[in-house]
Write a protein that binds this DNA or RNA. Structure first.
Length: 848
RNA sequence: GCCGGUGUGGCGAAAUGGCAGACGCAACGGACUUAAAAUCCGUUGGGGAGCAAUCCCCGUGCGGGUUCGAGUCCCGCCACCGGCACCA
């Protein structure tokens, strides 16, 4: 085994030493406005990682990928003179700790604390420049006190559709305050597993079965807390525009919100006073509606079903209820449904059309009912074919496409007053007609649903809510934090009641009132943790105005909306976490608690690191790489540099131990630029190191390195920055005399990548202070200019020769030199030169 | 099905429309060594011609196009990865 092998350089001693130095000197502690020593002239830079869930299995090599990237940026910006906020914390509520508690009897608080200690120690071993004095923990009462406080802000607010923002309930003039709160109560189906006697979270339900045991899971309506995120749908879409996020993530959010414009149309049910409202994005096809479909759960089904169809309808409804969501969607090829026996009247032509129920219409979207236009909707067409319902043309496709099943835009036909109009105009005209005749109106629908915010769990934030006489109310802020009850037994109750209901003394609030027993989902704590970092120990507010304005504020000289300057994390949070956090941020902004409307100005997703075998790392595959082992063998600096050298940050890429070795060799070469080994194996300062001037070639490499590394760090192209530093090292390794000044500069630009090694060498060459406190070096453009340039000579775009010309040769001179070159002579001999393209400093292309 | 991303040597990758393969790994050759490891120096996309220095042809998933010139831009495909999925 290689464990006996000598280390390429003594990283083990070096790394522990500098980690201790940073700890004891608080090197990376950021000062807030008002702190003694705070320098208001420095610009701020807030660089954020998605904080981890501290699991029992510790870090894997995927975590530190993003963390290393932000660490390099943090150290770089600090050297560039920024006041850098680079914090870390723990998203520590959640299911695994609770499940572990149920299994072992160990309290989740105990296992959580233990896991956090382990994670923190692992992160420190990598040498991250976190400001540990700002560490946050979502399970700390000093933290979740404010999570509960923010919930109360939501609870006491409503969304004013006129001002289009959240306002305190006091501005609400209506008589149904509970019906407009941003946090409200509704009957919503939960995943109930009777075999396990518990409610399951969505992530515990796999393919309609419980993850544990594979028992069937049924949807059962229960009283739940909801957050009215849908009121922010438009703003959540519109305000993406100003953000520096990957377009793909913006698109993912837009699609998730799923805004679609259309119309609501009201159909009278023949022989009754009932009306069915449907939503359609194609009001222009109303003349083509040949039947209506209601979702099986639609509230009017019972009322309108004809006696002769009652048995069939009930049987169908029962069948749908027992189908899982998956069965409903996955078996989409076979459409099913039954007629209700009722008929509706098409408002536009009075036509009598049958009303069906079918599970291809979903309760949760739109009005839970549709008008079927089988001529121009794929799903309706399939259904109509299956049940032999009439199909009618109302849109003429452009060109010679067939009209049956055509769902695109064309011209309205067989549609009365719409005939001849383009689809767009026909929609507009129909909306006008519907509105004028009181049969409906143009509306907007969203796929986004309100956020189901309660969980039937122990290990989460309790709601600051009490119930009295069937009414809920918020507890006073003075009673926060509301701690969870101390419980020995967190097991499910065997009923849909949450475990907290077992803590009778805790539940009892007064003679007449009792506490809410649901808890908040894990998303709650992660919705605002970035704010708490700015002011982590404030006991009066969740964040002070000054700290918020400083760290989260917009730069007045830039059009950007402000917020965290760089947020790095995985794509798995592209929708939920990032949408929820944006929602909370906007509410707090509307209520005047924050100065900017968006939390994260710039977002970058790091790619997944695959196992050495090229597939996703997993315990069962046995291809998980443990960072601790890599660090023990190669050192933290090699680990950091390899994570960055693997390839572009955003890309998915496989781990390679040989690759770590290569990077480790590079760092050892840096070490040996400064140090050499004696016969007895001692490291002493290298004799080649001396105080000499750089030659021209060395100057060029040096300044090219400063330039490239600076630019590449800004662009997050860490792999190419490291390549350039390798080129530098290769160039200087062979020099018999190595200029100290150049080595010093190398140590500065390498420092964000390999902070331990560079600090140690800095000290060994006798330089002043620490590298971390040096200003970032500036490159000299003059050093990059060559007196003579090598130009490429192409004939018809193919490389044929090269020539060296003076830096300021004219186009004419270059052209002449190219034509005179021996190979050009050969290739142009006997041919007519049709054109010559000269690209200054690059090439000459002769076209023959 | 829809949306998004990716496709370049044996491998990880690099290239403002201008010398494809920088840098690293692996492999091979050499130096040092009794030997090995480590280290240092060199070669390394494929094919062909030549004793040689050199030279030629092909080559960035596939097929077209724009251009003096395309890995890069445009059109049409294919494969893999990710997301959404009866959202009317």
């Amino acid at each position: 085994m290689s464990t006996e092998r000598r280390k390429p350089y003594p990283f083990d001693r070096i790394e522990a030493k500098w980690q201790h130095h940073w700890d004891t000197h608080s090197t990376f502690h950021a000062l807030n406005p008002g702190h003694p020593g705070f320098d208001p002239t420095k610009p701020k830079y807030f660089v954020l990682d998605m904080f981890p869930y501290p699991s029992g299995s510790g870090l894997h090599v995927g975590h530190p990928e993003g963390y290393t990237a932000t660490d390099i940026l943090a150290r770089f910006k600090r050297m560039c003179g920024f006041n850098v906020l680079h914090p870390m914390g723990w998203d520590a509520f959640g299911l695994p700790a609770e499940q572990y508690a149920i299994k072992t009897g160990q309290h989740p608080a105990v296992t959580t604390a233990h896991n956090i200690d382990n994670f923190r120690a692992q992160l420190k071993r990598i040498g991250f420049a976190y400001d540990w004095q700002r560490e946050v923990n979502t399970t700390d009462p000093g933290y979740f006190r404010w999570t509960q406080w923010i919930f109360l802000q939501l609870y006491h607010s409503w969304f004013n559709p006129v001002t289009k923002r959240a306002e305190p309930l006091s501005t609400y003039a209506g008589d149904d305050a509970d019906g407009v709160r941003l946090a409200y109560v509704a009957e919503v189906p939960v995943n109930w597993c009777s075999a396990l006697g518990t409610v399951l979270a969505n992530e515990e339900v796999i393919d309609g079965k419980s993850e544990v045991g594979g028992h069937s899971v049924e949807r059962r309506p229960m009283r739940q807390w909801m957050l009215r995120i849908t009121t922010y749908a438009d703003r959540l879409i519109a305000e993406l525009d100003g953000l520096d996020w990957p377009e793909s993530i913006k698109l993912l959010q837009r699609n998730w919100i799923g805004r679609s414009e259309g119309a609501e149309v009201s159909f009278a049910i023949e022989g009754t006073s009932h009306r069915v409202r449907v939503f359609t994005t194609r009001p222009d096809t109303l003349f083509g509606a040949t039947y209506l479909v209601l979702a099986p759960e639609h509230s009017l089904v019972e009322t309108i079903t004809h006696a002769s169809q009652r048995a069939a309808v009930h049987a169908y409804q029962d069948a749908c209820r027992s189908k899982s969501d998956l069965e409903r969607t996955d078996l989409a090829k076979d459409k099913s449904g039954v007629p209700t026996g009722a008929f509706a009247l098409n408002p536009v032509n009075g036509e009598r059309i049958p009303v069906w129920i079918a599970d291809y219409v979903l309760t949760g979207y739109g009005t839970g009912a549709i008008m079927a236009v089988p001529g121009h909707d794929t799903r309706d067409h399939e259904f109509a074919v299956q049940f032999d319902l009439p199909v009618r043309q109302v849109v003429q496709p452009p060109g010679d496409e067939a009209w049956q099943g055509f769902t695109g835009h064309g011209t309205a036909v067989y549609s009365g007053f719409l005939n001849g109009l383009s689809t767009l105009d026909a929609k507009r005209e129909m909306n006008r007609w519907l509105h004028a005749n009181d049969h409906g109106k143009g509306t907007v629908q969203y796929k986004l649903r309100d956020w189901l915010f309660s969980r039937q769990r122990y290990w989460g934030e309790p709601f600051p809510i009490i119930w009295e006489n069937g009414h809920h109310q918020g507890i006073p802020e003075s009673e926060l934090p509301l701690l969870p009850p101390v419980m020995e037994d967190f097991k499910p109750t065997g009923t849909p009641e949450p475990p907290l209901s077992k803590a009778k003394d805790w539940v009892r609030y007064s003679e007449t009132a009792h506490r809410e027993t649901n808890t908040m989902p894990q998303w709650a704590g992660s919705c605002w943790y970035y704010l708490r970092y700015c002011d982590p120990s404030n006991t009066n507010r969740f964040i002070s105005h000054e700290a918020e304005r400083y760290w989260m504020g917009a730069d007045s000289t830039s059009p950007k909306p402000g917020g965290v300057d760089l947020y790095v994390g995985g794509t798995e949070h592209a929708v939920l976490h990032l949408l929820y956090a944006r929602f909370w941020h906007k509410v707090l902004f509307d209520l005047g608690h924050l100065s900017t409307p968006e939390p994260f100005q710039k977002l970058v997703n790091q790619g997944i690191i695959l196992g050495e075998d090229g597939v996703k790392m997993s315990k069962s595959r046995g291809n998980v790489v443990n960072p601790d082992e890599v660090i023990a063998e190669f050192g933290a600096d090699a680990f950091r540099c390899y994570e960055m050298f693997m390839g572009p940050l955003e890309q998915m890429k496989p781990w390679s131990t040989a690759g770590v070795e290569g990077v480790s060799r590079f760092l050892a070469r840096v070490w040996r630029l400064v140090m050499e080994e004696t016969q007895t194996g001692e490291w002493v300062r290298s004799a080649a190191l001396c105080d000499v001037e750089l030659d021209k070639a060395q100057r060029k490499v040096l300044h090219a390195t400063i330039k490239k590394v600076s630019e590449d760090i800004e662009a997050l192209s860490f792999n190419t920055a490291i390549s350039q530093m390798m080129i530098f090292v290769n160039a200087f390794t062979s020099a018999s005399q190595r200029p100290v000044s150049a080595i010093r500069t190398l140590l500065q630009v390498l420092n964000p990548f390999a902070p331990h090694l560079t600090e140690e060498l800095w000290q060994l060459i006798g330089a002043e202070g620490t590298v971390a406190d040096q200003p970032w070096p500036v490159f000299d453009p003059a050093a990059l200019i060559e007196d003579e340039l090598e130009l490429v000579v192409q004939i018809n775009g193919k490389l044929r020769d090269k020539l060296t010309v003076n830096r300021d040769a004219t186009s004419q001179e270059i052209e002449a030199a190219a034509l005179a070159s021996p190979r050009a002579q050969e290739w142009t001999a006997g041919k007519t030169i049709r054109k010559i393209v000269v690209v200054p400093g690059k090439l000459v292309n002769i076209v023959v």
